[in-house]
């Protein structure tokens, strides 16, 4: 299978593309890993307020060594800073923001996304794996919109966009939109629907690497 690293969007380009779709003033939770790159690509003139589920709204970037505080961390347990107007709160309040539908957007990574919006991103179900879920199931159940940011295929060349997830689910019918290195794809009542192709990528190239049909008639309306 073709490696997707040298073609299509880079990780930063995917992040930049995601950021374009986030309105000014949005309250956003960025998942650990590739979604964190979104914070480096906020369009000029926009401010997003970042929520980290361990108890901070108004999270800022990594600290200078002199400002580093082991008890000012993000959900990935990395040290962060706080922005002016930030607030600390306990876990019940933090998850009231998530489960009560107060956050505008959750951006998450994925192992698999199904054509009906099912997401699998917490466990491969392997026998020797230590199961760990954190806040992922709460985020997908409670946040208004769930974006997935992912490579289109696994390192082994398997499609991540599938008809049905084979890994254990994080949530049922929860994903709104997928941003991969090859395309932006909506999850609709009719399944995957193309919104945009990465530069130099053809529709057929994306479809060949997707294990479920992608409809194209959706693209124009979705971009309006």
């Amino acid at each position: 299978m073709t490696s997707a690293t040298s073609i299509g969007w880079t990780r930063d380009a995917i992040a930049e593309r995601v950021a374009q779709d986030i309105p000014n003033g949005s309250y956003v939770n960025l998942g650990i890993g590739i979604p964190e790159l979104v914070a480096s690509h906020v369009p000029a003139g926009r401010t997003f307020i970042y929520h980290t589920e361990n108890g901070l709204l108004g999270m800022g970037p990594s600290p200078a060594a002199s400002e580093s505080d082991p008890e000012l961390i993000n959900a990935g347990k990395r040290r962060v800073t706080m922005m002016p107007g930030a607030a600390f709160f306990d876990q019940a309040t933090s998850f009231a923001m998530i489960r009560g539908g107060h956050l505008d957007l959750s951006v998450l990574g994925a192992f698999q996304v199904a054509a009906n919006g099912d997401l699998a991103n917490w466990s491969t179900g392997a026998d020797d794996a230590i199961p760990a879920v954190g806040g992922a199931m709460d985020l997908v159940a409670g946040v208004k919109r769930v974006f997935v940011m992912t490579t289109h295929m696994t390192k082994e060349g398997e499609p991540k966009l599938v008809q049905r997830c084979t890994y254990p689910l994080t949530g049922r019918a929860v994903v709104t939109r997928i941003y991969s290195d090859l395309a932006v794809i909506d999850v609709t009542a009719r399944g995957f629907a193309l919104v945009e192709l990465a530069p130099g990528i053809t529709f057929d190239f994306v479809q060949e690497r997707t294990a479920a049909p992608i409809i194209t008639s959706h693209a124009l309306e979705a971009r309006q």
Binding site: F95, A132, V133
Partner: peptide
């Protein structure tokens, strides 16, 4: 194993 928000709640 309990989802984090469910654990808090």
């Amino acid at each position: 194993l309990v989802p984090q928000g469910t654990l808090a709640e």
